[in-house]
Structure formats: C-alpha cells, structure tokens
Design a protein around this nucleic acid. Structure first.
Length: 576
RNA sequence: GCGCCCAUAGCUCAAUGGAUAGAGCACUAGUCUUCGGAACUAGGGAUGAAGGUUCGAUUCCUCCUGGGCGUACCA
C-alpha cells in the first residue's frame, strides 16, 4: 500500500502522540471522511484502542487531540483538529496546502515527476486485448482492450517500465473448425482473397450450427488443427490468409480506438517453442500420462492438458510457453493478465505451474479477471453469432452525437469535417468510458442506451466540462493563473468543495494502480466535473473580484481532466 | 454434483469495518438579459431473506433463495 506524504505524516504524529499517552496501536487508519463537516482526514484509532483498554473513546480521542495539537501548532499543512462522533479525530488541511497541491498539478512536469517516483523503474508486462482471429472485433474484447490499455497507461505514469503484449488468438482448434467450414461451405469457386471478416464469422457460426447435428465435424476439425500444427501446406495456406484478413480489421479498430500495443506475439508465435517447453516440464517431473494425453495435476484443481491425445497442443501449452518466454526475455517484476473471468481456472493452473517451474515474477502474477458482457437475458456467444460488432456500436453512437451536435450552438461555427471529427471523439469517448467507469471485476450488462449515453455520468460529460473550462480561459483577459499569489480570505462552499477534491488526484491514480481498476479514476473525474459544473452554475468567473482565484480553479480542473482523460485513453475535445 | 463469483432506488452503477448509503438514466417541477443548456437547481425512491461476529456491518462468517462462470482434449 503506497501512502501519500500527508498520510505518512499523520500516521507518525498519531503514533508519537499515542506513545506519549502510553498506548500502542497495531494499525492506524487514516481516511477521508465522507462528509465535509468531518474535515479532510480522520482517524478512528481511539475507538479501537478504547475498546481494548476499556476506557472511554471520547476521552481517549480528546487526549489524543491535545497531544496532536502540540504538533499542529507549528505545522504548514494541518490547520486544526477536532474530536467528533463516537471518538473520531478529524484533521483539517490549510488552504495554503490545498493551493500548493493544485499548483503542482498545473505545473505538469512537477506533477509527472512526483508520480514517476512511485514505480521505482520496476518492470511489468500486461497481456490485454487478445482478440481472436477470424472473428470481427466484438464488444467483448473491447473491455479487455480498454481496461488493459488504461492499466498500462496508469502504471507507466507511475514510473513503471511497461510492456503491453497482445496475445492474439491466432492458433487452436477454432482454425480446424474454420478450415472445415471453408472447405465444406465456403464454395470452391470462391477465392480466399475475396473473403471478408464477416464471411469468416458466418462460416464459424455455421460450423457450430451444423456440429450440433453432426458429431463427426468436431473430430474433423481437430484433425485439421493437428494437420495445421504439423505444417500441412493446405491448412497453412488457409490459416495465413485468415490471419491476414483479421489483422487488417484489428489495425483499423485500434486506430479508431487510439490504442497501441507494444508487441503482438500471438499464440502462433509460441508454436515452435512448445516442444522444448514440454521437455523441460517433463524433466521437472510434473507431467502425468492420462488417457493418451499428457497432463499436469494439481492438489486443489482439476488437471490441465499439456498435450492432447492426438499430439496437438492446447492453449494451456501455449500460455505456459508465453509465461516462460516473457520471464526469460523481459524479466518482469509483475505480470498482469487482463482476461475475462471465465478463464479464472485456466490462469490459476498456469500460475501454479509457473511457480513450480520457477518462472514467477518477483511481485507475482495478477489476473485482472474482468466480468463478462451480458445481455439482460444471458451471455453473448460468438458460436451462435449472437454478437454485437464494435463498428455497429460506434455507428449508432455517432448518429446520436450528430443529432446533439445539430442542435448545439457551438458546433454551428464548425466546418463539416471538424464536426464529424468531434462527433467521432464523442462517440468513442462514450463507449470507452462505459467500459472503464465500472469495476472491472463485475459483469457488465450491455445496454444500448447506456453505452451511448452522452450526458450525466459519461465520457462526453467529462469532455464537455473540459471544453467549457477552455472556453472560459479563452475569454478572460488574465492569462497567467497557474499559481496564485494572494490566497483569498474567504472562499465559498462550491470553491471549497472543488479545491478539496482536486488535491486527491494523485492518491486516486495510485489507488487505481493498486486495485487494477481504472474505474477509480473514472469515478473521480466525474466527481471533479460535477463539482466544477456546480461551482460554474452558481458563480460567475470573469470580471469578478475573485477572478484570479476562480481562474486558478478552472485551470486546475482543466489539468486534472486532461491528465485523467489521457490515462483513460479518452480523447479531449476543445469545442463540442 | 463440486468449485469460484455476484445480488444496493424502476434501470445502470458508487461506497474495500466507521459518522445521515452516494451518482447517472427514467419520472415530476424549475433555471436561457447565458463566462457554453451535452449544463445547473429541487423532489420521490434502495442494502435479496434469516441468523451470527463487532462499540459499529452494504462490507466479515453461516445457512437459504435467485443469477453468472468454470468443471481434460474450445480459447
């Protein structure tokens, strides 16, 4: 758990004060109270201690406060303390400190270099996106792509050395199925070159429909996959073409999403590495022969298949080869897998085997098992063709954004190209935010209205607030308010609420990293934007006597939103 | 059958042992002599059920109900 300087300081204070009073606490918890009336930080340490020492919690808290006040007197951060409730001690921050933190955010280089100290140059590898070849980019893989990229961005900004690896699903029995489908129903007259990604998907779906009636098809598919592994020229030729068609589609999607993944060593990359891998694991004595297959057994889990009875490998084999390759070549301190929760058992088996083989990074493996995408009724299934294509979602979101742009005053001054560009950013921002704003662990219910939500808790709400801020900064005559010299005597409730939210940015970024949850940042940005809009709605900024201070707030809000959107991988919009 | 996960407002989500459970959507009523109405203000409405641990439980434990995922040759 990484703590901010102020939390460390308060912990030390409390420890010292308790020591003087003759108490010792195992754990001192400092948190933000959820109500402004209880200050900026609080500790409940007196409550726990009072219980074990059988004293009155309020009395203990008062004594603690008295000791702390001796330290507060000469402090430049803490303004005052108070005892409240059942025995909480609350802390209030000085205005000067809040302003100093906001200034740091405004001077981006300072803020960035502070954040970069957190990771200490450690290295992590993150496995994300990993779409399957021969299927259109569905909104299922969108989740892994968005969350994975955001986690990558967050770790990078915290000074980690990051490698993103797109573990493309370009190998496996599914190709056996696809080859069978192409040969049987693709039409011999049809040239492979003329296939589109949609054709491939239709064939894949048709295979599963037919396979329900005819058991031999699956067996046939396994045979074709086995042929592919044995470098059969016909199988190989079809496979290569299919990969080419798919990669073209993925390139288009990533460009649209503004995603770029460092390397893309798909499953096929590891095919020629599995023979050695199997030998090494065999040497270690982990392999058991069972019903013609080579398996690995575990104490508390079902076994994993390393080699199938027909001699072909499984995705377990290839994932083990991947673990070894990354361990040997990249020597990461941390390995993250942003893959769906439906593969929980699989990765438990992979990680367990890796531990036994000594291929575990120092800080271990993390499976960010994101929840599945569901209809209200059930699960999406590629096999049944019950999927939603990303391109359809984008098209519909763009239609909706265009409609809003049509009635917007600002966009009347834009050229058609500018407007179309803006509409695209809004639509993609909305779609991405929908994925990122929710705790990755939970299933996500697909809802057209929610995905395309352009108001309220949404990506466009953040983009809009950003544009609104810029517009104010554009209209004022005072151009330099990154820092302020005269701190106002009195600030109103909305100003106070806003500045007391802005300084939390740093800890939110760290929390997002620790919890592997970009949603922490997404939620935080919504809060900032909401507070800003409330402030904006109540108080004029330009040509007021408080203009300098208020512009400072606007500028800090801009900095936080810009930085936060960058972390989430959502594009900013200057005018919308 | 066994294992893992989930259940919060009509709907979609927050709250990772603390103080009066927060938002958005939808609904109702307002705010346009506007620094940008993709906004703001106000309103009603919620912890699946039963026990337990605790000074304190949406949060931890047990059981029940409902749902999801997994459970050797798909990935």
């Amino acid at each position: 758990m990484i703590k901010t300087e102020i939390v460390v300081k308060l912990e030390n204070w409390i420890e010292k004060a308790l020591d003087k009073l003759g108490y010792k606490s195992e754990e001192i918890k400092i948190e933000h109270p959820n109500e402004a009336q209880f200050g900026d930080y609080s500790t409940n340490v007196a409550l726990g201690l009072a219980k074990s020492f059988k004293t009155n919690p309020n009395e203990l808290a008062s004594n603690l406060k008295n000791e702390l006040d001796l330290l507060v007197d000469s402090d430049e951060i803490i303004e005052k303390t108070e005892v409240a409730g059942a025995g909480f001690v609350n802390f209030y921050l000085k205005k000067e400190y809040l302003i100093k933190k906001a200034e740091e955010i405004n001077y981006e280089t300072v803020f960035r270099s502070n954040l970069a100290k957190v990771g200490l140059g450690k290295k992590m590898v993150i496995d994300y996106s990993a779409p399957n070849i021969a299927k259109p980019f569905g909104i299922g893989h969108l989740r892994s792509t968005n969350i994975g990229q955001a986690i990558y961005n967050i770790y990078k900004i915290l000074g980690w050395n990051c490698i993103g690896d797109n573990h493309l699903g370009d190998w496996g029995t599914q190709f056996g199925k696809l080859i069978v489908a192409i040969l049987k129903w693709g039409g011999a007259e049809k040239d492979l070159d003329s296939y589109t990604i949609d054709d491939l998907e239709k064939l894949y779906v048709k295979f599963h429909k037919e396979a329900e009636k005819d058991d031999t098809l699956v067996e046939e598919a396994r045979e074709w996959f086995s042929k592919l592994e044995n470098k059969d020229p016909e199988a190989r030729k079809i496979w290569e073409k299919v990969v080419e068609i798919s990669l073209e589609e993925f390139r288009r999607v990533y460009e649209l999403l503004n995603v770029s993944i460092d390397v893309a060593n798909g499953e096929s990359f590891y095919v020629d590495k599995t023979d050695d891998l199997i030998k090494i694991i065999e040497k270690k004595g982990l392999i058991v022969d069972s019903q013609g297959a080579k398996i690995i057994e575990f104490e508390n889990m079902p076994p994993a298949i390393l080699v199938k009875s027909n001699g072909a490998t499984t995705y377990f084999t290839r994932d083990m080869a991947t673990v070894k390759y990354r361990f040997d070549n990249w020597k990461p301190d941390l390995a993250i897998y942003e893959v769906g929760v439906d593969q929980l058992l699989h990765f438990s088996q992979v990680f367990e085997t890796a531990k036994k083989m000594g291929w575990e990074p120092k800080e271990g493996f993390v499976h960010v098992a994101h929840g599945l995408l569901r209809w209200k009724g059930g699960k999406f299934s590629t096999r049944k063709g019950d999927t939603i294509h990303l391109s359809d979602v984008i098209d519909q979101a763009m239609d909706r954004a265009r409609e809003l742009a049509r009635i917007s005053k600002i966009s009347k001054e834009m050229t058609n190209d500018e407007k179309e560009e803006m509409v695209k950013k809004v639509a993609i921002g909305a779609i991405k935010f929908n994925d990122l704003a929710q705790d990755p662990k939970k299933d996500i219910i697909f809802d057209w209205d929610k995905v395309m939500n352009l108001s309220g808790d949404s990506g466009p709400y953040l983009q809009y607030t950003y544009a609104r801020c810029l517009s104010v900064l554009d209209k004022t005559k005072i151009k330099e308010t990154k820092n302020i010299i005269n701190i106002p005597e009195k600030i109103n409730l909305e100003e106070e609420a806003l500045i007391k939210e802005l300084y939390k940015f740093e800890e939110k970024i760290i929390e997002a990293a620790e919890r592997f949850s970009p949603a922490v940042i997404a939620e935080y940005l919504l809060g900032v934007a909401r507070l800003f809009n409330e402030f904006y709605g109540k108080h004029r900024i330009i040509d007021q006597k408080e203009e300098v201070f208020r512009l400072f707030l606007v500028r800090t809000t801009v900095s936080v939103l810009a930085f936060g959107l960058e972390l989430l991988g959502i594009e900013k919009i200057e005018k919308m």
